[in-house]
Simulated assay, not measured.
Amino acid sequence: MSTRYALLLDVDGPIASPESRRVRPEITDALTRLSQAGTPLVFNTGRSDAFISQTVLPGLTVGSEGAPIHAICEKGASWFTLTSSRESELHVDESLVLPEALRSEIRDLTGEFADFMFFDETKRAMISVEQNTDVRNELYQRVQAGFDQKAAEAVERHGLSDRVRLDPTIISTDIEDSRVGKDLGADRALELLRADGLDPADYVWRTVGDSRTDYAMADRLHELGLTVAHVDVRPSDGIPEGRPYEVLTYEGLLHDDAGLAFLEELLASLGQPGQ
């Protein structure tokens, strides 16, 4: 019997280019064919449902006999399903939504840095700012440190330091409830698959990401006794030592180049070579 795989996918990096913020057609095609071949796909991302709907899902289809495709957004704070008739109802965990007063202050603060970043109005629970696409990443990261300091001071002024944390990435800063994370997203993913009538233990799992925080996906699945390996498409961020599962990398390939290589390799192992 051939191996059955299930995928838990970060979006920025392995699926969408951090530079263009777009998904290349070859990746969309590979994801569609994996679903049609019976591979459950779950996006586990800090991105909003709007970004997934507008950037990742166009061109991605699941047939009536295909495996499910789920989107866990804002690191577990919201989620929805892609079906043969397109998207299902969006669910939001209201306990993870940050106060509007803090959101308003961070929106105003972002205006002081408007030459370098923008406020993401599509987030429903967390608060995020993101690098302008016409700004060099090295410049953005230098300015980002100043923004993060002022944002942390705002969190403290609102008396939220015990509940809220800042999570800077290479192109953004997320201000979020401390309970969200890629491990919470993994838990949501398993709940959704069980609701589909699938047993997560029937699959060999591959988690895919571009930062050290993405290892929390594989950590959680391994902790629950599932068979998993992690695909790191940006190992220069640092591979944590002592992980009890295999870590896969693609030498000479970065971000969505490595993500595409992984997807095509997986298709080939299922007897469906890339087109």
Rank of each mutant, 00 (worst) to 15 (best):
H158Y: 10
G252P: 08
D174H: 13
D115P: 03
G76N: 07
G271R: 11
A50L: 15
D167E: 13
T81G: 08
L96P: 01
R234I: 01
M117L: 15
R206T: 12
D162A: 11
A186T: 15
Y215A: 03
E251I: 08
G274H: 09
S236I: 10
L160E: 08
A30R: 09
E251C: 06
R86L: 14
Q141M: 14
L266P: 11
F118C: 06
W205S: 08
R142W: 12
R243F: 04
V155C: 08
V247D: 06
A67P: 10
A77T: 05
A37N: 11
V11D: 00
H230C: 01
D174C: 05
F116L: 09
T45H: 04
A77P: 09
D214H: 01
P244G: 05
Q149F: 05
S84M: 04
D232S: 12
F119H: 09
L34N: 08
S53H: 13
L9M: 07
E19R: 13
T28W: 00
G238L: 07
S88C: 07
K150L: 15
S20I: 00
E251P: 14
S236C: 08
V56Y: 08
V231F: 09
I106W: 04
M126R: 03
S95Y: 02
L109A: 07
P244T: 06
I15Y: 02
G13C: 06
R142Q: 15
E241S: 12
D162V: 01
D148H: 07
F147V: 13
F118I: 14
D93Q: 11
R22S: 14
E105S: 12
I171R: 10
T207F: 03
C73A: 03
F116H: 14
G185Q: 04
L7I: 09
A71Q: 07
A125G: 07
S17I: 06
A189T: 09
L226W: 06
V228P: 11
A50K: 14
S17R: 05
F51C: 10
G242V: 00
D237Q: 13
S35E: 10
E74Q: 04
D29Q: 14
R21F: 12
D183M: 01
V231G: 01
P40D: 03
E246A: 14
E223Y: 09
